[in-house]
Design a binder for these strands. Structure first.
Lengths: 319, 319
DNA sequence: CTGTTAGCGCCTTCAG
DNA sequence: CTGAAGGCGCTAACAG
């Protein structure tokens, strides 16, 4: 019994001949180790839980790939759990994952509320936030600076001579993709001495149609903007099509820029200029951080911010 | 101890007062049941494993949503495992899931090889194939008829007067999205007395660029096709852009039809005519089937085929 | 190097 | 209705 355990767990203290015999028996009997029993006995499951806000969102899928690759590298299994972007489902999912005795947790949902913090606190395994941050700085995280990504995007528009710049925002309740990007937009205007104009901001829901709706609104304006900054690629694509559908052109009539650099950005005409977020890296780095935490290695930097960059394509023109 | 177990598991044989006291103690102590221990003792984990070929594929994400919803309904947890479209990773993932003692397994990868069948056979929990089929009919499955979906698509082109119809196919090694659709294409031509022409078929990799490449090839042909059938939306969109980039128009110069009806289909201009597969339903139905199998209820129909339909938009015109 | 002995935390009889 | 006892399949000391 114990020897079989040693063989299965690659414990070196087994005579090669014995090891071989055990392997043969395993083969012959079709023995499959019971991970549940193992987990109970060893108090480790070598699996980490990943809670994803929305599995059908390509950005998160990319993060997941980064997580996966590093997890495999360190021989952790990962179990993905979808949370439908609902806060209570997130909490529920965190708890089931914890009940399943995962060795660590990666959380991708935003915003991180007090309730989340509460749930995290009761966990006795390390947790790292991935593609999101905890404002209070209590939980390790890996993210980009959404505010400055937005700022850079809008500044690049201003650099092209645009002065009347609209924004298609996400909900301001969403700290990362929503609020922070809106703040970046405002700061860029401010830094350039452009007065902020409420009528130039529409709130969308990150979907294509909401981008198109917002754009149609801007087109109707008596004093039209010359450029629009979208919080996400998908809404930007909706905007581009709304422009084209009404007989106008990108970028000659309107410049469009967004942030995400999803695969879709090159799947429109004109191709979308957008600021790229290193989603894969966010996943990879956060998983790496988690492994360190799980091994109780000490980490110098527990709130890491990855750099972003503008990918210039064809949707922005000068004025 | 036993009473707590009863309370936690909603066993009715507990006096309400006692139940209340237990709940209070649970709250006060911050007790969290250990699912691993529970799984070991009860030999059930109330979780089902889902192996997904490619988490970044929107179609699979949609299937996953269907699975999730039904799983929640029946109080099963689901653990998603990505397999990167690699056969050996699929096998490995199936095995880890089985080691984790899932109560059932949903497998979404294609093709289903003998090795897969072998792995399934050693499982002593029910397995259902989801959005894929086992040719040999040994494993329950829920899928659409890819061959006839392709057939219908091509027939609709022929109905519009097209005679020279190209195809952008997936790899013929892929039985569902690849081979079956190609067969449907051929059968439609045959049924209409149109000779099959090898030079009118290009193999892509389901990605945007490969669709564009294939289309560029067709455009160069001395005898151009008037319509193209793409095995997937994404390749179709690549094709549409290749057409437009070379100054031609859809659908006046080329009609384009595909199968998937992904969300992207309405995110192109012109919007894509495509045959819709009920991905959500495939997920939901297969999960439902799995619950029956797990409860050892008998099922009348273990190989279910869901209907598809053509969604007419703007990318197909008459000749 | 290998076998023996205790649990891991819970569920499940079985008494009471 | 509640407690006691045994055991799920495995790992972790501990002897030998």
């Amino acid at each position: 019994m114990a020897t079989v355990s040693r063989v299965v767990n690659n414990n070196p203290n087994v005579k090669p001949a014995t090891r071989k015999k055990v392997y043969e028996a395993i083969e012959r009997l079709g023995y499959r180790p019971n991970a549940v029993a193992r987990g109970l006995a060893s108090k480790k499951t070598t699996t980490v839980g990943v809670v994803i806000p929305d599995i059908s969102n390509a950005m998160y899928a990319e993060v997941a790939r980064g997580i996966e690759d590093i997890a495999n590298m360190y021989h952790y299994n990962i179990i993905l759990a979808n949370a439908d972007k609902k806060k209570d489902k997130e909490i529920r999912v965190i708890n089931t994952l914890l009940e399943k005795q995962v060795d660590g947790l990666l959380f991708l949902g935003a915003p991180v509320t007090d309730e989340h913090l509460q749930a995290f606190k009761t966990a006795n395994v390390p947790i790292v936030l991935c593609a999101t941050t905890d404002e209070s700085g209590q939980v390790p995280s890996v993210d980009i600076n959404h505010e400055s990504a937005a700022y850079d995007a809008v500044m690049s528009l201003i650099g092209q001579g645009h002065k009347r710049i609209a924004m298609i925002s996400g909900t301001l309740q969403d700290p990362a993709n929503g609020y922070a990007r809106f703040q970046g937009y405002k700061r860029a205007l401010e830094a350039s001495g452009i007065p902020y104009d409420d009528s130039l901001v529409r709130i969308g829901n990150y979907r294509y149609e909401s981008g198109a709706d917002a754009m149609r609104y801007f087109i109707e304006l008596s004093e039209r903007p010359t450029a629009v900054f979208s919080a996400t690629d998908e809404m930007a694509i909706g905007a581009i099509h709304a422009i084209q559908d009404s007989g106008l052109k990108v970028p000659s009539d309107f410049s469009v820029i967004s942030v995400d650099n999803s695969r879709m950005a090159s799947m429109v005409r004109p191709q979308l200029t957008t600021v790229a977020q290193p989603m894969y890296d966010i996943g990879a780095v956060s998983m790496r951080l988690l492994t360190k935490l799980m091994k109780k290695e000490n980490v110098d930097q527990s709130q890491v911010v990855l750099p972003h960059e503008i990918v210039v394509r064809q949707s922005v023109g000068g004025i």
